[in-house]
Structure formats: structure tokens, C-alpha cells
């Protein structure tokens, strides 16, 4: 088993946190893991993306050139990664900020109005977790439970109280993904 995903969006949308959480959960499951942030010269507010690979075997390159899966949180990221996707790859989109349809016909697409869902849960900042939960449910690189457990590595001190809402968001994303899979 080897699963790779690109997570992309604006700086501040929690792109890196989602990627690190996934990597941490993989590590906790004793799997081989690489997390590679994009480290271009851009400063805050620019586009950000990271590559996460989780595998049963040692990982060769941590660079994902042609993604088999991508979590896309804004329009510029869709423009950038849509052409790179592997055939039959999975695109999980934050529909709230992406007004256009996917042009390619040879990829799987799950559009989630994730920011609206997050707002309904009580905190728009958990948009990333909804999308990550959906990804984890479909591709199963790690157990949803491991993602929830890994939250405690990142939300410490004052942020500890945010763990329940993040857990809820992961679950909500997984639920949406199950509906998506069932509807096929």
C-alpha cells in the first residue's frame, strides 16, 4: 500500500496542518511517511501546498509529480493541479471557493461546500479537516481514528479545547464521503 496526496490552498487555510496531521497519524500507525511542504520564496497569503505519502514500504521520492489524489482548497490550486492529476485520480474540492467545474473527464471529483459545512458545525476554520476526513474515508491511507488521535500533537495548551470541533469536522467529512461513495 502506498498513498500519496497533494493538499493545496491559500496560506492560512490550514493546508500544512492537514498534511502534518495526516503524516503524524501515519507515523502513529507505524507506517513509512514523508511530508514535503512547498517552500518557494512566497510569503504569507500566497498559495501553499504539501505532498504527503504514506506507505508500507520505504518511500523513494517524497515529491509527488503526478498526484493520484489532491485536496484542493482554492481556485488557483485547482488551475495548478488539475492538469497534473493521474488518470482516475481523486480531486476533493472546497466548492465554497471554487466557482468552476473540473474540466477533465478522466478524474474522480468530490465537491464539498466545505466552508459552509464548517460554519454550520460552528467554526469555519475546520474546513481543512472536513476535506481531510473525506479523503481519509475514500482512500484510507490511515484510520479516521488515528487522525483524531493525532490532533492532540497539534492542538495543545489554549488550543486543546478545539479538539472536539476538529474531530467532528473529520467525522462530518467522512460522512459526506460515504454518501458520495454510496451514490455511485
Amino acid at each position: 500500500m502506498q498513498k500519496g496526496v497533494v493538499i493545496a490552498g491559500f496560506g492560512g487555510q490550514g493546508v500544512m496542518l492537514a498534511g502534518e496531521l495526516l503524516a503524524e497519524a501515519g507515523k502513529d500507525e507505524e507506517k513509512f511517511v514523508t511530508f514535503l511542504p512547498s517552500y518557494g520564496p512566497e510569503m504569507r497569503g500566497g498559495t501553499a501546498n504539501c505532498d504527503v505519502i504514506i506507505s508500507d514500504k520505504p518511500i523513494a521520492s517524497p515529491v509527488i509529480g503526478r498526484p493520484e489524489a489532491a485536496i484542493i482548497m482554492n481556485l488557483p490550486s485547482l488551475d495548478k493541479f488539475e492538469p497534473l492529476m493521474k488518470e482516475n485520480g481523486l480531486l476533493i474540492l472546497n466548492k465554497t471557493l471554487i466557482p468552476r467545474e473540473v474540466k477533465r473527464k478522466d478524474v474522480r471529483v468530490l465537491q464539498i461546500d466545505a466552508q459552509t459545512v464548517a460554519r454550520e458545525l460552528g467554526n469555519e476554520k475546520v474546513t481543512n479537516m472536513i476535506l481531510l476526513g473525506a479523503y481519509a474515508e475514500i482512500e484510507k491511507p490511515v484510520k479516521l481514528e488515528s487522525l483524531k488521535k493525532a490532533l492532540k500533537h497539534f492542538l495543545t495548551g489554549k488550543k486543546e479545547k478545539l479538539i472536539p470541533i476538529n474531530e467532528k469536522a473529520l467525522e462530518k467529512g467522512a460522512e459526506i464521503a460515504r454518501e458520495f461513495l454510496g451514490g455511485k
Partner: peptide
């Protein structure tokens, strides 16, 4: 190299 510097692994 820069890749080894920037990437995370257990």
C-alpha cells in the same frame, strides 16, 4: 540537499 532539509519523516 534542500529536500532532506525541508521534508518530514519519522
Amino acid at each position: 540537499d534542500g529536500l532532506m532539509g525541508q521534508m518530514m519523516e519519522p
